[in-house]
Design a protein around this nucleic acid. Structure first.
Lengths: 263, 263
DNA sequence: TAAATAGTGTCTTTAAGACATTATCGC
DNA sequence: GCGATAATGTCTTAAAGACACTATTTA
């Protein structure tokens, strides 16, 4: 495969190669090609009871100085999720515990620099890292964000919607809770994400019913009041909840024919 | 914006510009760029009680002659969904009633021709068109497909999963049913998609409860037996079902504090 | 009027909502 | 023991499952 030793971030904001004029590209067959491809992680975390998103200030055009997602250019030999992970690590010093592709934004005029599609990822990092106040980045409440560069406002909104939508139907919250956690702790995280308060005993029942978590038998110590039982996720790999309340019943008696699908 | 009058499909299979060697591209800043960008519609439809996908034979490398999705190259001034629509129309003569972005596949080695990411779309077309047996294309059962070119097998699987997953939670079935339809007709379509048989009276209750459809008051005529009531979708725009059975209850009495979110 | 298909009613089971109550800690 | 927090139990309500039954057409 034809490849050359090229710098990893050909067009990073602030680099000398960034021009106020559009960039174009053509391929070896003579046709116009995308000028580049970017990947952006939408990093979400509950913080102080509210859901926050990690943003950085842009150091170059377009929208210099505006708040934006911490993305960057993909290189030829990198998978897009690797780019998202790498960019995230560069900004926060940690990798994502949970990373899932969100959407690709590729409208012809989305980036004034030229034809530059971007693949967005939903990224969830360890809660313990949240306190590390990196100088380059800042956490913003998703319900009250600053004005964002380009189409990044839309991308954040899509990420939030995905997280909220999957919260009860998958173990996506592995990315938001420590390895071992208590029920009240999980409840507060869920509440911060959805913006809704839950009745503690029902919350417990539902989360247990989901089949996603199990009690370790150990107790959390140190707090006020009765110590809480520690729970852990049954699997830390992406998994679906059992809760997904069912579509209409399958036919039983007379018509029982099993499923139609063959595989 | 710097643009040139370039042909729309720079690298279509079979064109003279396709070489057995990789294609590369570089941008005006001197860095390597994607050689091109493609969009592929995953066209799904129930046919003879089973879910099928529309495939074409590849006319050029890679995998010449293999079955593949009917995708094609994006041009500079086209949105990716427009490309998917256009490619679909070129193959079937119709546009998609429902089109939603699925995933982007951009691994560095996914296409032997070079760095060519592809954006996949889930596309649903009018059921009436299914019978038109276009020479270029063929319907294949999704549960028993042929071997597909490149990563298209994976893409089809992702499309099927999306359709099945959203079936009861959205009005995605607008793309699979005629404008006016009967309950038994809807049931057969749902059964073909999910591969599961439903108890007719419960199916009716659930679909009505979803709030997505309403009875027109008119009756279907012509068939055997009692004529069925015709239904229509309340909205043909993407919409969510009311069914989505709820996460744990919000707190009511003592702790009632409303929602946390501000917006 | 028989066969075929559509549509209604209803009883049972299960899940979810709304608490009251009990348990276990530190001070 | 008291305040604080965690956990359990249980009664009520609502949704879903499993039918039996009724309705309306054509042959």
């Amino acid at each position: 495969m034809l490849r050359m030793a090229s710098p990893r971030h050909p067009l990073v904001p602030g680099s000398a190669s960034v021009l106020p004029v559009p960039i174009s590209a053509r391929n070896s067959a003579g046709f116009e090609a995308p000028a580049g491809m970017t990947a952006v992680p939408v990093v979400l975390a509950p913080l102080g009871g509210r859901l926050h998103v990690l943003l950085v200030r842009r150091g170059g055009p377009p929208d210099v100085g505006a708040w934006a997602l911490p993305g960057g250019f993909m290189s030829r030999d990198e998978r897009p999720d690797e780019t998202a992970q790498r960019k995230l690590t560069e900004k926060t010093g940690v990798g994502a515990i949970y990373l899932e592709q969100l959407q690709t934004y590729a409208d012809p005029d989305r980036d004034p620099r030229g034809w530059i599609p971007t693949i967005a990822y939903l990224a969830l990092i360890d809660a313990a890292v949240l306190r590390a106040d990196e100088s380059q980045a800042r956490w913003w409440p998703v319900d009250d964000p600053p004005s964002l560069a380009m189409d990044h406002g839309r991308i954040v909104a899509d990420g939030v919607e995905r997280l909220r939508g999957k919260l009860w139907w998958s173990n996506i919250s592995v990315g938001l809770l420590p390895e071992r956690f208590t029920m009240p702790q999980a409840r507060r995280v869920f509440e911060a994400i959805s913006g809704v308060r839950h009745e503690p005993s029902n919350f417990r029942r539902e989360l247990e019913r989901s089949g996603l978590v199990r009690a370790t038998g150990e107790l959390a110590k140190g707090g006020l009041g009765r110590p809480a039982t520690l729970y852990e996720f049954v699997s830390r790999q992406p998994a679906w909840s059992l809760r997904r309340s069912r579509p209409p019943a399958t036919v039983t008696r007379g018509r029982r024919v099993g499923t139609i699908r063959s595989s």
